[in-house]
């Protein structure tokens, strides 16, 4: 498993305040890695830098051996909101990254349509975002992210808008689909359980300025059993993470 994405010594300040300092993270091929941290610690800030939308004060981002610091358009990025454009039909929303790259609309639609079934969106192609449920919108945003990717994706709280029941269903679906499509993902969450269930590795971002204070490997093999989250192994991971996040951070 080769390294596809890495960031070295990333520091970013806004004005006088240093938000994140000396961050080192990497992502291997086909890996699902989670960035876990309390609200406001600088997770989105780091993602904006990894995606190239913002420049770090120092440090560099490398994708497949090539430096891409400050160059957007190389890594696909699902932002914290689902951000489906209300005036475009679902199929055109999802196909947007293809049309941006110059594919004509009809072709882009055809290419996107192939995945609708798999992403649980069959029949919604010509609806508008306002007509979809929250879960469907997030799956559509996820599909769009997948279509814009060339193998690496950043997902900022991709499942945050869902309640617990919908969430565990979408986790199953997500793990299933990740086996079929080859995508290396780095994702953000507030939710410790979600982090353990989905990830191969978890980075803990904490402190002020935010730093990577811990890195936890989830050794559990895939495909993971549905009741993984009820096993003692799961609980011991959870204990480890809660300790790593520090006192008072259990309810994040």
């Amino acid at each position: 498993m080769g390294e596809v994405l890495s960031a070295a010594h990333i520091t970013k300040s806004y004005g006088e305040r240093t938000i994140i300092r000396d961050i080192n993270v990497h992502l291997n091929e086909q890996e699902i890695v989670c960035l876990l941290g309390v609200s406001g610690v600088g997770k989105t800030t780091l993602f904006h830098i990894l995606s190239g939308l913002n420049l770090p004060d120092s440090g560099r981002v490398v994708l497949n051996g090539r430096e891409i610091t400050g160059q957007p358009g190389k890594i696909s990025y699902m932002l914290q909101k689902d951000l489906l454009l209300p005036y475009k039909r679902i199929i055109d929303n999802v196909a947007l990254p293809l049309t941006i790259r110059g594919m004509n609309k009809q072709k882009a639609r055809e290419k996107a349509a192939v995945y609708f079934e798999q992403f649980g969106l069959a029949g919604t192609e010509f609806e508008y975002p306002a007509q979809l449920s929250g879960g469907m919108r997030q799956r559509a945003a996820l599909l769009r992210t997948y279509l814009s990717s060339e193998g690496v994706a950043l997902l900022d709280e991709p499942f945050s808008a869902l309640d617990t029941i919908t969430k565990s269903a979408i986790h199953d679906w997500y793990l299933d689909i990740m086996q079929k499509i080859s995508l290396s993902t780095l994702f953000i969450t507030h939710d410790i359980d979600e982090a353990i269930v989905l990830s191969d590795r978890i980075y803990i971002l904490s402190g002020s300025p935010g730093q990577i204070t811990d890195e936890i490997e989830i050794a559990e093999k895939r495909p993971r059993a549905r009741d993984f989250s009820l096993t003692p192994a799961f609980l011991s991971y959870k204990k480890q993470i809660v300790t790593a996040l520090g006192p008072g951070s259990f309810r994040i």
């Binding site: 939308l53 957007p72 358009g73 890594i75 990025y77 932002l79 947007l96 814009s148």
Partner: peptide, 8 residues
Amino acid sequence: DLMRSMGA
């Protein structure tokens, strides 16, 4: 930002 991240 979304558009920029897609290289627009």
